[in-house]
């Protein structure tokens, strides 16, 4: 008979072995690589923190970091506004509400590559529907090259991300809205509180942990953006959409400077961890 106190540990063994094989070992090896110099021809040699020092002198990496931050905060910010707006809009009873809610989820469950390919067609400067409607409605007088004009390329990637992931924010905030006791809202209405005041002082405090949670997930995910860059812009034109994950991929798998690429990934990981900790602390406080 297995002692009851040992049973949880025994049950955890398969998961632990899997974690060790597919997460912990690669991560530790990644740290080791980031402290090494790897050359296709001469092999691997220990370099200490040299790669990290080089990174912070590398204008291309610093630029990619800037592009990544602009992308993450613009995309997640816009997703929050859209997601919250839809959640508030649908937080009432109306005919066939379930169908609307289900339809909103669709972008979120699509494969990122499929989404990027779809948007590649939508953005096509010559025959894409976006330009067609913009020209038709006279909002523009020329065909905009969404993916190949520096001033629009990053915006285009942000729009794809907002389209795909606003439903996630909606999902979390919609669940949060269900937790607001209706009797409190009714009481506030009877007392003559305006809609804004009800939202600001009643709904928002209830929603706050959900907002932080949604931000946490989305920020962690948005930092890793890769698929849409690979399909839509390849980091171009120029370096206008060169995010850290794309530069890290190029450095690792085109230049085969594996140590340097690993250092980039570790820096990105550290940044994500830092932001996550700030947000998690916020959740705990609440």
């Amino acid at each position: 008979m297995v002692k009851e106190k040992h049973l949880p540990w025994i049950l955890l063994v398969p998961v632990f072995v899997l974690l060790l094989a597919v997460t912990i070992y690669p991560f530790v090896y990644g740290i080791y690589l980031s402290l090494s110099n790897y050359s296709i021809i001469t092999g691997i040699s220990f370099r200490g923190i040299g790669n990290y020092l080089d990174l912070f002198r590398d204008s291309r990496f610093l630029h990619s970091l800037k592009v990544t931050f602009i992308f993450v905060f613009s995309a997640v910010g816009a997703e929050f506004l859209v997601g919250l707006g839809i959640a508030l809009l649908l937080n009432r009873q109306f005919w066939q509400k379930r169908i609307f809610v289900s339809l909103i989820y669709i972008p979120m469950i699509m494969a990122p590559i499929a989404v990027a390919l779809m948007w590649r067609m939508l953005y096509n400067a010559d025959y894409g529907p976006i330009n067609y409607f913009l020209l038709l409605s006279r909002l523009t007088s020329r065909k905009i090259a969404w993916l190949s004009e520096s001033q629009y390329a990053l915006l285009s990637l942000i729009m794809v991300d907002v389209w795909q992931w606003s439903p996630f924010i909606f999902l979390v905030l919609y669940a949060g809205l269900q937790s607001v006791p209706p009797e409190l809202v009714e009481a506030a209405q009877i007392d003559g509180a305006s809609r804004w005041k009800i939202f600001r002082y009643l709904v928002l405090p209830f929603l706050s942990p959900f907002i932080v949670l949604a931000f946490l997930f989305r920020i962690m995910d948005a930092f890793k953006i890769f698929d849409s860059v690979a399909v839509l812009t390849k980091g171009g034109p120029g370096t206008s959409t060169e995010v850290v994950s794309w530069l890290s991929y190029l450095t690792g798998f085109t230049y085969f400077r594996l140590g340097y690429a690993a250092a980039m990934s570790i820096v990105l990981f550290a940044l994500i961890m830092l932001l996550s900790q700030v947000l998690l602390k916020r959740i705990k406080q609440q």
């Binding site: 065909k143 905009i144 969404w146 190949s148 839509l232």
Partner: peptide, 11 residues
């Protein structure tokens, strides 16, 4: 020459 190409040629 890029000026005489279809729009979006940089992609």
């Amino acid at each position: 020459c890029i000026k005489y190409c279809p729009p979006g040629v940089l992609n």
